[in-house]
Nucleic acid binder design. Structure first.
Length: 482
RNA sequence: GGCGCUGUAGCCAAGUGGUUUAAGGCGAAGGUCUGCAAAACCUUUAUUCGUCGGUUCGAAUCCGACCGGCGCCUCCA
């Protein structure tokens, strides 16, 4: 039984989809004015793992991630660089997809863009206006927070306390300082769309309400089971989404709210505005996607994670342990023709344990621990038994495929170091290994060691076992890290 | 000021009333194997969970106080 910590109730709740086996999931995507940073990546990857686990459980997940392609920041950048805002958005949308792929994230079913949903957005604002939740002041339309009784239920904030806070911006047009823009009147030189209130563009919060409602529907026929995003979106963004959607639709907006902790740098939130960030693509130049994902999976998604090179390096080291076994398994499956023993090994036990811990609010740190336990136990079995048949290796592969590869995305059987190389390269290495084996037979260790060390310099590591010598290519990313 | 998160070994981190005198990873030390390495395996590395009290037969886990770190309340994953 899966339990999810729900920000709304501040406790773990049993997960019950609205229309099983379907699960509708909406994740707040990027505003495409720049490359996303590794802190953003944490949210994306965490939601990717959640999605993959739900699919593993047998749910049919419809996964929607929005792309905010009209926004103050994009306009600002457009003005600074004297480039059309459309071009800016397009550039970073492409970059976003490149990075998502490199991070081994499954693609969303739909990536709705704000600019392609103007009709839906305008419809929703009209609806809010008709129902008395919105008011128009000279072409700017605001949401009347005072009209929505449950305002603050997600973030635990109270309207009167917020009002007394001096940090809320003062805007004379608003009835209440907490009221937020649904529609912003166009200023000179800004992109705009036509609307019943004049030319303008949508406020930030309305696009998510309109697009999630459009693509995932409203109960009982549709609806959002899970809505996820970073902690900083709880207020005001998600609070406002609830206010808009529930006022317009008259139905509960989202059943489970999931929020991700921040990635910190020297104990300080990584953010664009503070300037203390690394873009995901820069981190990927130095470390593998699997290492990044492992690092994230080793901490609960909701808490903070202090990001550093040291942690990423140790994740990369830990990954080697899994990759070494995966490589061994692949080699055995290809070449093993032994008829002999199939050792006692309870594969099911590990899978049961894995799902047991993941069922507890996606406890990936414990899931990772189960995988490492498994790797150790398989290695031990291999070292204690002389003749293990191929069935054992196939079972081991199956477990790793489901968990490490399929759910956590920290392993990629199709892309293990050796298999990714060209045929000629592999043949040449095999030839050198043969040469070295001959040298060893003649006890010419000087030559044998020279072959090994020279190959090592090229990133090819030789490993002698009793029967044969195997090799692996160390990842170039590892070398860059050293 | 309000709301929320957080303080566990050299580092990262799970666990949130008894199965735990605390998972897992990195690091360190010793050993097995090996011509030597590497990999792998074995052993060791927190009698202790920010501090002080309390509740309980029993607490890292519940309650209170205190100390420290972070975040949101304004765009932000």
């Amino acid at each position: 039984m899966l339990k999810i910590y729900n920000t709304l109730s501040k406790q773990k709740e049993e997960f019950k989809p609205i229309n099983p086996p379907n699960v509708n999931m909406y994740v707040c995507g990027p505003t495409v004015y720049d490359y996303f940073h590794i802190g953003n990546a944490r949210s994306f990857i965490s939601s990717d793992i959640i999605r993959r686990y739900l699919e593993y459980m047998g749910y049919k997940v419809k996964f929607v991630m929005n792309l905010t392609d009209v926004d103050d920041k994009i306009i600002k950048k457009s003005n600074e660089e004297k480039i059309d805002s459309k071009i800016i958005a397009e550039k970073y949308i492409n970059a976003f997809f490149e990075d998502v792929e490199k991070l081994k994230m499954k693609k969303a079913d739909i990536y709705p863009k704000a600019t392609e949903h103007m009709d839906d957005i305008i419809e929703m604002i009209k609806e809010l206006e008709q129902k008395g939740f919105a008011y128009n002041v000279d072409g700017n339309v605001f949401y009347d927070v005072g009209k929505f009784k449950e305002y603050g239920k997600l973030s635990g904030k109270k309207i009167d306390e917020l009002e007394s806070g001096s940090r809320v911006e003062v805007n004379v047009e608003k009835k209440n300082p907490l009221d937020f823009a649904l529609w912003k009147k166009a200023k000179e030189g800004e992109p705009y769309w036509e609307s019943p209130w004049g030319n303008g563009r949508p406020g930030w919060h309305i696009e998510c309400s309109a697009m999630s409602c459009k693509h995932l529907g409203v109960p009982p026929n549709g609806g959002i089971d899970i809505h996820a995003g970073g902690n900083d979106l709880i207020f005001p963004h998600h609070e406002n989404e609830i206010a808009q959607s529930e006022a317009a639709n008259g139905k509960k907006f989202v059943n489970y709210w999931i929020h991700f902790g921040f990635l910190n740098l020297d104990n300080e939130k990584m953010s664009k505005s503070l300037g203390n960030f690394f873009t995901a693509r820069d981190v990927l130049k130095k470390y593998s996607a699997e290492a990044i994902r492992l690092l994230f999976a080793q901490t609960n998604y909701g808490g903070p994670l202090n990001f550093s090179d040291e942690l990423l390096s140790s994740a990369e080291k830990g990954l080697e342990k899994i990759n070494n076994l995966a490589q061994k398994i692949e080699d055995e499956i290809k070449t093993n023709s032994k008829e002999s023993i199939n050792p006692d090994f309870d594969f099911q036990k590990y899978e049961n344990e894995f799902t047991r811990v993941m069922d507890d609010d996606f406890n990936t740190p414990q899931g990772v621990a189960v995988i490492f336990d498994f790797v150790k136990e398989v290695n031990r079995t291999i070292s204690e038994n002389e003749n293990i048949n191929v069935k054992f290796y196939k079972n081991a592969k199956s477990f790793l495929e489901k968990t490490a590869e399929g759910i956590l995305g920290i392993l990629d059987f199709d892309n293990l170091s050796k298999t990714s190389d060209g045929k000629l390269e592999g043949d040449l290495i095999e030839f050198l290994i043969q040469l070295r084996t001959d040298a060893k037979k003649e006890k010419n260790y000087t030559l044998a060691d020279k072959i090994r060390s020279e190959l090592n310099k090229l990133g090819v590591v030789l490993e002698d076992s009793k029967e044969k010598t195997t090799y692996k290519i160390t990842r170039t990313k590892n070398q860059a890290a050293n």
